[in-house]
Amino acid sequence: MAEKKQRIVVKVGTSSLILPNGQTNLRAIDRLAFTLATLNHQGYEMVLVSSGAMGVGLASQGLRERPKPIAKQQALAAIGQTELMRIYSQRFLDYQTQVGQLLLTRDVLHFPVSRQHVLNTISTLLDDGVVPIINENDPVSVDELDHHTTFSDNDELSALVATRIGADLLIVLSDIDAFYDKDPHKYPDAQPIRRVEELTPELKAAASGSSTRFGTGGMVTKLHAAATTMEHHQQMVLCSGADPRIIFKVVKGEAVGTRFGK
């Protein structure tokens, strides 16, 4: 009987993919592709949940700030997603690994029939050694629609994907290297918490909003993602996305970032 392969979902935020000057962080993407391709070759089943469509769209159009009209934001996301996938496909192929794209809305994962189609697709891609790259379908998902199409951000999406596909681990790469007892951007004496087995009211109160102009999430959404995985008796590791090769350390079980779950 064949040994079950370990299944890992990696979520990368916009802050890890876009440089402070607004340009696409090609080195980070290359290191991310190298890391996931290497693990894929070693027999792990790797799934990538990637933000960044809006950030890459802004960079490709030479813009520094998001336009206010929703339609223009959607257009930028459509442009950026195409460019982002081109870069991912190119970089992964450099390491002899194919990728496949899935763009999802909340409806798709909540309706049983469409959810099963998505799960079947992911399963088939993994069986074929292909790395699924998942993002929210931004040109379709808007807050103004009456039905619920949007995820609060890709932290939530990654947790839903991880629980739906029965992942062994969710790794969230962020612009912060761990979960702290208070905001380290404001308080120099903030201390990292390396292991969280229960999300207490005190821990939730320590969370704060997004610290970058590109991303939409913050520590609150990461705690929500952790809560989702913990409810399904799974683990999540929050760590720095500055160098995606840190994933190797996480997979080895080294004490980096914050590990949520028992």
Results as ranks from 00 to 15, higher is better:
94 D>I: 03
95 Y>V: 13
102 L>K: 04
123 S>Q: 04
105 T>E: 00
99 V>S: 03
92 F>H: 05
106 R>M: 08
106 R>Q: 07
112 P>K: 12
111 F>P: 01
103 L>N: 09
105 T>D: 00
105 T>R: 01
92 F>D: 08
115 R>G: 05
108 V>T: 14
127 D>K: 12
103 L>Y: 00
97 T>I: 11
103 L>Q: 06
106 R>Y: 11
123 S>A: 06
98 Q>H: 12
126 L>A: 00
93 L>R: 14
120 N>M: 06
98 Q>N: 12
124 T>D: 14
123 S>L: 02
118 V>I: 13
115 R>T: 07
112 P>S: 02
104 L>I: 10
90 Q>E: 15
92 F>R: 02
117 H>E: 10
95 Y>H: 15
116 Q>M: 11
109 L>T: 11
100 G>V: 06
109 L>Q: 03
95 Y>A: 06
89 S>D: 15
97 T>E: 09
96 Q>P: 03
124 T>Q: 03
122 I>N: 01
122 I>D: 02
117 H>G: 12
96 Q>C: 09
102 L>P: 00
94 D>V: 05
110 H>L: 07
119 L>D: 07
100 G>I: 14
96 Q>A: 11
104 L>F: 08
119 L>E: 07
111 F>N: 09
126 L>Y: 01
108 V>W: 03
124 T>W: 00
105 T>I: 12
98 Q>I: 08
96 Q>T: 10
113 V>H: 06
117 H>T: 14
125 L>R: 07
102 L>A: 10
127 D>P: 02
125 L>E: 04
96 Q>S: 11
116 Q>L: 08
111 F>T: 08
112 P>E: 05
98 Q>P: 04
100 G>M: 13
95 Y>T: 09
102 L>Q: 02
117 H>K: 14
100 G>N: 13
89 S>A: 13
100 G>D: 02
119 L>F: 06
101 Q>R: 01
102 L>T: 00
91 R>H: 11
116 Q>N: 10
111 F>Y: 08
120 N>L: 09
97 T>C: 14
103 L>M: 12
96 Q>G: 05
93 L>H: 14
117 H>W: 03
97 T>A: 07
128 D>G: 02
90 Q>M: 10
107 D>F: 02
113 V>I: 08
109 L>R: 10
116 Q>D: 15
105 T>Y: 06
